[in-house]
Computed example of a mutant assay.
Amino acid sequence: MASAPQQALPMFYKDLVPLNSKEHGKWRIKGLDDGAFLAQQHAIPITSDEFIDACRNYPIVFSVGENSVPLILMGLNEGVNAYLNDKGQFDHPTYVPAYVRRYPFLLAKLNPDAEELSLCFDPTAGAIGEFDEGQPLFDGDQPSEDTKRILEFCENFEGSGQRTAQFMAELEKLELLMDGEVSIEQNGVDKPYVYRGFRMVNEQKLRDMRGDELRKLNQNGMLPLIYAHLFSLQIMRDVFAKQVAAGKVPQVSEAPSIQV
């Protein structure tokens, strides 16, 4: 089974194989039993299209460094996911990011010089194989209806990624992003937990923008997304409370950093 050319694989993916009828004509796909593959992930990429849905459940922040991307926080410390229980399942109905729903599939270039993207999958996921159960991936030598829907989802995700890149480029152009910091106090602990290592929109700078600049942000749809991000930051304290309840809070002396 030939793997797709790989450099650094995206989060979750351990291998990538191009899907084709010759090798996978009799293969089927079944749902993953749980979300164990994201149990150690505290920050998950999201697209700007998802801000409105995601802001109800998660803090939305931006990664540090060049090529900053939006992320939801499922934990405030590296390796901590406060949203999954011991069975790798969400305890409550919660929005699941498209990045997670896409797994184990991915559109990738089979040739670094090619422009066309091909549908690939992670064979280590345990969701695709020569199973007796599940939905077939092919109907003869043609993609099944399920495979067509998976391909459409991945194509839509790529389109959302392009819109997200444009959104981020505009934030950078307007110099609206700043280093973020949140201080959270815990009962019985003298010093607050101060979390850093992420970026956020500078709310004061947003307020000080000229009217024509704000009008442009409103007309191009960015302003609601910016406020969804800002409102979502309050949920950091809820995430912290989840970690406290699960006994997953470090010592204050460790100077915690979200590291996204």
Rank of each mutant, 00 (worst) to 15 (best):
A2Q: 14
A4H: 07
Q7M: 12
M11Y: 07
M11W: 10
K14N: 10
D15E: 15
S21N: 09
K22S: 14
E23I: 00
H24K: 07
G25T: 03
R28T: 12
G31D: 12
D34P: 03
G35Q: 13
L38R: 04
H42C: 07
T47K: 07
D49F: 11
E50T: 01
R56M: 12
R56D: 08
N57D: 14
S63A: 12
V64I: 15
E66R: 15
N67C: 09
P70G: 11
G75R: 05
L76V: 02
L76R: 00
E78Y: 09
E78Q: 15
G79N: 12
V80M: 04
Q89P: 08
T94I: 05
V96I: 06
P97E: 05
P97G: 05
Y99D: 00
R101L: 08
P104H: 09
P104T: 06
K109A: 08
L119V: 09
L119W: 05
L119G: 03
F121R: 04
F121K: 01
A125Y: 08
G126F: 06
G126L: 07
I128C: 00
E130G: 11
E130V: 13
D132N: 12
E133K: 12
L137P: 01
F138M: 05
D139K: 13
G140F: 07
D141F: 15
E145R: 09
D146G: 15
T147H: 02
K148T: 09
K148P: 02
E152P: 03
E152G: 11
E152Q: 15
C154Q: 10
F157G: 04
E158T: 10
S160N: 04
G161A: 05
R163P: 03
A165G: 09
Q166K: 09
F167Q: 06
A169N: 15
E172W: 05
L176H: 10
L177H: 07
M178I: 15
M178F: 08
E181V: 11
S183Y: 00
E185F: 06
N187S: 14
G188F: 05
V189P: 02
D190Q: 09
K191Q: 11
V194S: 02
Y195C: 01
G197K: 06
F198A: 08
Q204P: 06
Q204V: 04
R207W: 14
D208W: 10
M209R: 13
L225T: 00
A228Q: 04
H229R: 02
L230F: 11
L230N: 06
S232D: 03
Q234S: 15
R237Y: 04
G247L: 03
G247H: 04
K248D: 05
K248A: 12
V249E: 01
S253L: 10
S253K: 13
I258S: 03
I258F: 09
Q259Y: 07
V260F: 11
